[in-house]
Design a protein around this nucleic acid. Sequence first.
DNA 1: TCGTATTTTCACAAAATACTGAAAATACGA
DNA 2: TCGTATTTTCAGTATTTTGTGAAAATACGA
Lengths: 181, 181
Amino acid sequence: MDKQSKPTSAAEAAQLAAARDEFVTQWGAIGNSWGINRTMAQIHALLIITPRALTTDEVMEDLKISRGNAHTNLRELVGWGLVRSVVRKGERKEYFEAEKEVWKMFCIIVRERKRREIRPAINVLKDCIERVDDLKSPEARSFAAQTKALSDFMEMADGVLSKVVRSEQSTIVPWALKFLK
Amino acid sequence: MDKQSKPTSAAEAAQLAAARDEFVTQWGAIGNSWGINRTMAQIHALLIITPRALTTDEVMEDLKISRGNAHTNLRELVGWGLVRSVVRKGERKEYFEAEKEVWKMFCIIVRERKRREIRPAINVLKDCIERVDDLKSPEARSFAAQTKALSDFMEMADGVLSKVVRSEQSTIVPWALKFLK
DNA sequence: TCGTATTTTCACAAAATACTGAAAATACGA
DNA sequence: TCGTATTTTCAGTATTTTGTGAAAATACGA
């Protein structure tokens, strides 16, 4: 091999590979701290930085994880809508590719967390409020007031997020940003 | 006991206690899904709906948890700034009370998560970008572009949250809300 | 239809995390 | 100073979560 003609080759490829690995690892740690399965976050990271779609086997090999693990977490990512499964004509294998546009990713995550976590929380709060609605004791009124405050806040937050996410494009937030202080 | 003069007594107290328990339990579950220790969230819930400050022993008894567990999680809550420890003159026991104002709670949580999770994530991304800054291959450029997009987005989000949280009062968001769609 | 490639499921194992109980340290009054 | 109340620490245990490997199911070509 002529080192002059391929200055990009070995060392640089290794450098890139190391950076990619670091990204995948760290993205896994970040996801983990936000309550997302570490492996799921790593697969997501891998698919984000891979231009082409990957098969389950490629994911397994790259992250050194088992088939079952890769499969479960790929399904979960598809369930969130962060990853699409694509089929190539004439091929039986299933390929996976991530949504790469950052704003869309954000919208998907916000929508899902709203649906899976914020809405249920609001329902629980409302239920608690109802359960003491007929009680007149000061303790009961105080409890109702506090849970009501939380419920109202979360409804408000839910509403803000709905609006932010509605347009599916990032222009609104930076624009609204100007008005904030 | 005269049932007429205390119509609020037994049954209603039980009803309130049940609602409080439900709230504590569910708040624990919610916190858990957001990556927060279940017990810590439950203690927080308990303190939020308790008008007076509680001792470690009272928390232990109410939630049926060990001293070590109660202690660790109370310290953690104090570390977040969500709970204050108060000392009553002439008493040796330490009492704990939660910040009850919802918007302040929100600000504290956002500030802490920004500091503990968003900033480190941004640093990792920036580090990844730097590591491939000198590489010219299309693969490297593509990787750099994708991580840059993520990094920029997170910086933007960090900035928005900073501004939202800066004032320590809730008037700004509802106001900005009008401009969103 | 059969044989093979691929996907899916699931019981169990491993790892990570949370909790306990009890001892050690500390604070304070007498 | 000693004795007691209170807080803190931490090694060990329990629980929960995550991952594995292998078998079962499915899809497809011949």
